[in-house]
Structures are given as structure tokens and as C-alpha cells.
Nucleic acid binder design. Structure first.
Length: 477
DNA sequence: GTGCACTTGCT
DNA sequence: GCAAGTGCA
């Protein structure tokens, strides 16, 4: 009989958990689980209080579900990654652990942390890392030249090929083992913890939501996903971000409901699959190009852009006080709920970068500090896409018009009115340009005038990008 | 080399 | 129509 320690990190579930399953392979072995909170590290990574609260809530349900299969959960708190190796060593000595099991995390700091742990523990403790967080391990989906893709569409083609030939099945939760496990309440982390009713904690609510979405909503996803007032998105991102749900579970569930969706690129199921594929793409990218984890843009020359350093402009964007209703409503949705509709994320990101000419990294960090589904790879990928600094050739001269976007995706202003009650009197026709209505009527409204004129800002941004791209053209002749 | 294609737009 | 390059097969 051996003692196995399962170290939970971004995989707070017992179903389809590769490391947990491996640790439980032999019924006679003793299995204990461990989670280590790292408040200092979270702070450095701008983790949102809603996400920390969500982790805490899900850890509590994880403790229960682990107890139900006879596995006790230890929860420790260590300030940062530096203290983890010694903390785990101590646990291993206390419980006479023979082997450590964990699912790999791919960002740079996490990989370094795991290396340090393995070095410290070996050879007394066998360490087993598993690829579990993605459909396929990073650097396993490659071009003909053996390199990671830089363009999404060919990556997706290769991904589909892999899915059809070598995807792992979903793993069931391990069978119950050993005797009863007593649980005591997990003390709250030494970190701000917020919670929100919109995302109930636990694997069961997550799986229910997944099943329901794939059964009832996904067919309409292509048609309605861009309408924030409709809210036809899956709302599964918070669960995926901390691993309450696995992406394999999502894919298999989708396949169970729409067996041939890969043959129907127009279907809602395919559109949603695209989102899972984007997640996969961005995670693979982050591993292939470490600079992406180091605050660097993918396209080098964009480092030469002279960003607007304004603290005030940035703050107004953060607070939803820009005078562009769709932008402000979106920011207030995020500030109040910890979540923002995907279409709106693109709109507000484009606005910060292309209208205010503010460094995308400030927006990226702000998003992380507010989002319940904050995920380094997806968030960075999304921001670099919006800022035109990323892999895909989203030409920088393609700039969202916030008013046009608002009219297209929230025509009657249903979403805007939800978050900007001060615009209650503004007729639908003017809901995207309330200041114009106000002037016309001679009625003041309690809402800011636009922080910038879009047409003017657009030109300025084009110039700033063009100058950065061709610096030698300046001052010559 | 050679041709095709490139998330979600805008004036 | 833009506008321009280059990743990928």
C-alpha cells in the first residue's frame, strides 16, 4: 500500500480529472488531496476578488465530493510560489507520501514552480504530471514544419483532425474508497473574496449548465450569441477557468447532442466549438511564445507605439464613464457581476486601444482584476487581437465604431438600459447617442458627454500605429 | 516557388 | 473598395 497525494490547482473537480484518476488507480492505495492558496501570487496576477471567491466556494464543494469518495482534502495557504516546495515537502513527510500527482499548468511561473517542487521532492517522492487542462498538450498540434501555428484557421483544421483521431474520453469520478472522511470548514483565504449568484459553485451546477446549453441553446448560438441583451452565451467560462469543468467534457457533451456538427460549419454547435478552439489556440500560443507571458506583444513593432498615458481617461473607461453607452454599460456589467458578454469585451477593448489609444496591457490587467473567468492565455489573446498586436492579421486599420457596434448588437438599447438607468428617458433612436438627443431637446441628462470624438480618435490612432510601424519615415526627406 | 486565405469591420 | 503582408500547404 502506498500513499498518493493529489495536488489540486486549476482542476477543481473529481470527474474527468486525469491526475486524480491516476492516483486512484489501485483501490488499496491511500489517497489524500491538497490545495494551496497563494494570495501574494494571486495579487501579482491581478486575480479578481470574484474569482478568488469562486475558487473558495468551489473548493468547499470539492472537499465534500472528495469526502464522498473517501479522500480527505488538506488546504494550506502560502504567500507565493516560492514557499510551495517546502510546504509540500512538509505535507509529504507528515503523511508519508510516496507519490505526487498533479495536472500541468502551462504558464511560465506555474511551470517553474512545478519544476522546483519536483526537484525538491525527488527522489523520495515520485512526481507524476499530466496533461489535462486542454484538448491536447501544447506543442502537439503543429504545422508541416513542426512549429506552432500562428493563424487560427489552419490551427483549427489541425485541431479537428486530432479530435477525430486521438481525443481522450471523459474519465468518470473515482470509485469510493476507504472509510468515512470527516470534514471541517475551510478557513477563508487571506484575500478579498466576492461571490455572485449567477455562478453557483460545484461540478453539478456546472455540468447541468453544460448539458442544458448543449441541449437547448447551442442551436441558436450562431444567431444570437452577439446580442448581449439576449444572453445566449454558455456562461461556462468561469467553470472552465478554474477547472470545475474540463474542456473535454464540453466537447464530448457537444458531440453527444450534435453528433455531426463538425460537418456543418454553419451550425450553432460549430460556432460554439470555435470558442473552445480559440481557447485551445491561445493556450498553445502562450507556451510556444514565452514572451506572451512577459507582457510583450506578439508583433514587435507595436512596442514603439506612443500610448496615451492619461490616468483620467483610463479611469473613466474602467468606471464606465466614457459617454459611449454600449462601452459604459459593458464596463458596469463587469464591475458589478465579474462577467462581461463576449461581444462587449471586443467593443470595450477596441475602444480603450483604438479610441483612447491606451496601452492594451492596462486593459488586460484591469480585466483580470475584475473577471470571474480571468484566464491569462485567453485574456491576453483576446486583448492582443483587439489591439492588433497579436498573431492574427487583424489589421490595425480595422477599428470598431462603438456607436455602430451598439446599434447593430443592441438596437433598442435593452442591454444599455439595464446598466445605465440614467438613460431611461432617451428614446430608442437616440440611445447610442444620448448627448445628441439631449442637445436637440435642450434637456440636460445625467450622463457624460463622449470622452473623445470617434472619427477624430480613429485618425489619431491610425497615425500612431503607422508611425510605430515605419519609424524611419519620420523626420526624413 | 506558388497560390490561397486570413474571426467576429468601416467609411 | 479598403490595402498588405505573410502563414501555410
Amino acid at each position: 500500500m502506498a500513499t498518493h497525494l493529489v495536488w489540486f490547482r486549476n482542476d477543481l473537480r473529481i470527474t474527468d480529472n486525469t491526475a486524480l484518476t491516476a492516483a486512484c488507480q489501485h483501490p488499496s492505495d491511500r489517497v489524500i488531496a491538497l490545495y494551496i492558496a497563494t494570495p501574494q501570487q494571486w495579487h501579482q496576477h491581478d486575480m479578481a476578488a470574484v474569482q478568488a471567491g469562486f475558487i473558495y466556494a468551489n473548493l468547499c464543494t470539492l472537499q465534500q465530493s472528495l469526502a464522498s469518495i473517501g479522500i480527505p482534502l488538506l488546504v494550506l495557504e502560502v504567500n507565493d510560489f516560492g514557499g510551495i516546495a517546502s510546504a509540500i515537502t512538509q505535507v509529504c513527510q507528515q503523511h508519508q507520501v510516496d507519490a505526487l500527482f498533479y495536472n500541468r499548468q502551462y504558464p511560465l511561473n506555474e511551470r517553474r514552480r512545478d519544476q522546483a517542487v519536483e526537484q525538491t521532492l525527488s527522489p523520495e517522492v515520485d512526481c507524476h504530471g499530466f496533461d489535462d487542462a486542454l484538448l491536447f498538450p501544447p506543442m502537439s498540434i503543429l504545422t508541416g514544419k513542426g512549429e506552432m501555428y500562428q493563424i487560427y484557421t489552419p490551427f483549427r483544421h489541425a485541431l479537428i483532425h486530432h479530435l477525430q483521431t486521438k481525443l481522450q474520453p471523459v474519465l468518470p469520478a473515482p470509485k469510493q474508497r476507504g472509510g468515512e472522511v470527516n470534514t471541517t470548514d475551510i478557513p477563508p483565504f487571506n484575500y478579498p473574496l466576492d461571490s455572485h449568484d449567477a455562478f453557483p459553485a460545484g461540478e453539478q451546477p456546472a455540468l447541468q449548465r453544460l448539458r442544458r446549453f448543449c441541449r437547448e441553446n447551442v442551436m441558436d448560438y450562431e444567431r444570437y450569441r452577439d446580442i448581449p441583451a439576449q444572453d445566449m452565451t454558455s456562461r461556462l467560462s468561469p467553470y472552465l477557468a478554474i477547472g470545475v469543468l474540463s474542456v473535454r467534457q464540453c466537447y464530448h457533451r457537444l458531440l453527444a447532442e450534435s453528433a455531426d456538427f463538425l460537418l456543418q460549419p454553419q451550425s450553432g454547435a460549430f460556432a460554439w466549438f470555435n470558442e473552445l478552439a480559440w481557447r485551445e489556440f491561445y493556450h498553445h500560443l502562450l507556451v510556444a511564445w514565452p514572451k506572451l507571458s512577459m507582457n510583450k506583444p506578439f508583433i514587435g513593432w507595436t512596442e514603439r507605439i506612443h500610448w496615451n498615458p492619461s490616468h483620467d481617461d483610463f479611469q473613466r473607461w474602467c468606471d464606465g464613464e466614457t459617454g459611449y453607452p454600449i462601452v459604459d454599460a459593458a464596463m458596469r456589467q463587469m464591475n458589478h457581476t465579474g462577467w462581461m458578454h463576449n461581444r462587449l469585451r471586443m467593443i470595450v477593448a477596441s475602444f480603450l486601444v483604438k479610441d483612447l489609444l491606451i496601452d492594451w496591457r492596462r486593459g488586460e490587467h484591469y480585466f483580470m482584476s475584475r473577471l470571474i473567468d480571468g484566464d491569462l492565455a485567453a485574456n491576453n489573446g483576446g486583448w492582443q487581437w483587439a489591439a492588433s498586436t497579436g498573431t492574427d492579421a487583424a489589421p490595425y486599420f480595422r477599428i470598431f465604431n462603438p456607436t455602430t457596434q451598439g446599434k447593430r448588437f443592441d438596437p433598442q438599447g435593452h442591454f444599455i438600459r439595464q446598466w445605465l438607468p440614467e438613460l431611461g428617458d432617451v428614446p430608442d433612436k437616440w440611445i447610442h447617442t444620448p448627448h445628441q438627443w439631449s442637445e436637440k431637446q435642450g434637456k440636460p441628462i445625467d450622463y457624460p458627454t463622449p470622452i473623445v470624438d470617434h472619427a477624430t480618435a480613429r485618425i489619431a490612432t491610425l497615425v500612431a500605429f503607422e508611425q510605430a510601424r515605419k519609424p524611419q519615415a519620420i523626420g526624413e526627406d
